[in-house]
Computed example of a mutant assay.
Amino acid sequence: MSDLLIWVTDTLNATALSDLVMNNAVVFPTLEMAHFLGLCLLFGSLLVVDLRVVGFAKAIPIERVDMFIRFAIIGFSINLISGLLFVIGDSDRYLVNIAFWLKMGVIIIAGLNTLYFVRRIKPQMDTGVESGHLQHGSHVVAWLSLVLWTSVIILGRFFPYVE
């Protein structure tokens, strides 16, 4: 482990927040439940949006999937907060785990994919353009989103098994 990583883990482990997360019988399990709820909101919402963009559930007007984007943002926010608290609470476990770093990398790529979606595809959805007439590449962005977020889930499940 590098000196910087040792310093970061020692610093985080010395905080009162780390102590609260790791030494309170209620906090860590509550964070796990919140993280799972956030995951359900995030992935469930993205599933609806992305599948609609690729042409499934055509009976749902494409401009109506906007409400699912809001739920995805709420889910991501819950996961961001609970995930940060996991890292602060148990930095020795997370910051040395290759699956953690791969997951963070995939989240960054998924975020860039989402940024592209929000800037290029969502404005067309807001005007009611049908999925078949969305900008070229919208299907690729939607499928990529599903693959990336599925990868995030899988990598998160690897944490206990990879070090």
Rank of each mutant, 00 (worst) to 15 (best):
L5S: 10
V8N: 09
T11A: 06
A14S: 15
T15M: 01
N23R: 13
N24W: 07
A25Y: 11
V27N: 09
F28Y: 13
T30D: 05
T30V: 12
L31D: 09
M33P: 01
C40A: 15
F43N: 07
V48H: 07
D50G: 00
V54Q: 01
F56Q: 12
A57P: 06
I60V: 15
E63F: 10
V65Q: 06
M67P: 11
M67W: 11
F68C: 06
I69P: 01
R70T: 10
R70D: 14
A72K: 01
I74Q: 08
I74E: 05
S77D: 09
L80Y: 04
L80D: 06
L80E: 02
I81L: 15
S82Y: 00
L84V: 14
L85W: 04
F86A: 13
G89T: 02
D90R: 15
D92L: 08
I98T: 14
A99C: 06
K103A: 12
G105Q: 00
I107H: 05
I108H: 06
T114F: 14
Y116V: 11
Y116E: 00
F117P: 03
K122R: 15
D126A: 11
H133R: 13
L134K: 10
H136N: 14
H139M: 04
V140Y: 03
S145G: 11
V147G: 02
L148Q: 04
I154L: 15
F158R: 01
F159N: 06
E163S: 13
